[in-house]
Design a protein around this nucleic acid. Structure first.
Lengths: 196, 196
DNA sequence: TTTTATCTTGAGTGATCGCTCAAATCCAGC
DNA sequence: GCTGGATTTGAGCGATCACTCAAGATAAAA
């Protein structure tokens, strides 16, 4: 009996993701979304409830993709420190590919909406990322790759701050090569943690 | 014959700075400004021209204050690398004092308004900060504090990215002590560049 | 073909946006 | 006290905001 939905939910979320990532939450108007999603306001609200709920769903999607990508890189390298270094080097290639924004959407959201309320989900996802970084440093210690005096928690916080800085830096008008150099310097420092 | 202005321009700019720094450009409405500045729309527009021009003027003020503060810390330390390390350690105290936001207003602006157009001034000021960092590293090299193999430009980019990351990190719900530890770790690394 | 449950439409809601301007207000000089 | 020129006021402008809902469109079931 039912008429089937004309829009694929995942594709629609990807279009919204691109828009929100580029313009931020407040600067993205319903009009913008109508055009990008090729949906009229009624459909958007029937599907997602509100602009805010749509944004949360988009954030979830962005976060899940980011965590998957991180996991991919870490498991592709048998060395935990090497995996973390690879992750940084890959961020150095940010400017090689067109993207809605070079900065991290989670950080953009955190800075736009403040530490409370609406950006709570962004912070949760950032916490997940950081936890994964810390786990990698713990793995490095257990494998004997990391000097025993090093604290995985502190290294994880530090790594997270570096990633946030690198990606915010990438949002500036900067040359491709300079970003590569910056990311490589950071990656080299991570690998320098390995005891020789 | 003229009636003298009722508002002090610098004090007014400071109030606007607090608001814009906390809420960002788009989320700060004229109504917010009217309340915070205790001015009616006509006065605001007579004094500053537009919301955008007011924001630019506020950015200038923020940038100048930041550059002065950086200069103060660098010149207070006879060692260039020590001065840069001090700057980082002082950022570790961000959460000890109440502020409109713990994140850097220039980075918030860059991420909110994108790399083009309206945030051009924010990028210029970030460039000035970075140039000052690079000059400090150059000074360190000339004093013989820095190993000759090190490139002041790259170190400056790296330092800038670290500061951006640290301050974005500080915007998260994080404990005071954790931010101190993070800043100290970064500062120690800068001082470790000194040849022993 | 008709029915029916679901999805989509888009004109229109009240609220708020940045902003304007004629009138009111104010104070220094006469 | 009066007057002239600068400042301040605030009602209100058109545009846009997020959002609603009655009506229309669609396709599977009867």
């Amino acid at each position: 009996m039912p008429r089937h939905a004309q829009h694929n939910r995942q594709e629609t979320l990807d279009k919204a993701l691109s828009l929100f990532w580029r313009k931020g939450f407040k600067a993205t108007s319903l009009k913008d979304l109508e055009d990008a999603l090729d949906m009229r306001p009624g459909s958007i609200y029937a599907s997602f409830g509100s602009k805010e709920k749509l944004f949360q769903e988009v954030l979830q999607r962005y976060g899940r993709q980011g965590l998957v990508e991180l996991e991919r890189i870490l498991t592709a390298n048998s060395s935990p420190l090497g995996g973390l270094a690879d992750y940084l080097r890959q961020l150095g290639e940010l400017r090689d590919t067109p993207r809605p924004s070079h900065a991290c959407m989670l950080v953009k959201t955190l800075l736009e909406l403040g530490p409370g309320g609406q950006s709570a989900l962004a912070q949760e996802i950032l916490d997940s990322m950081e936890t994964r970084f810390i786990d990698a440093f713990k793995a490095a210690r257990e494998v004997g790759e990391l000097a025993p005096g090093q604290d995985p928690e502190r290294l994880g916080h530090r790594f997270q701050a570096q990633v946030m800085g690198l990606r915010a830096y990438a949002e500036r008008k900067i040359e491709r090569a300079a970003l590569h150099a910056l990311a490589d310097d950071m990656a080299d420092d991570v690998e320098r943690l390995a005891r020789v």
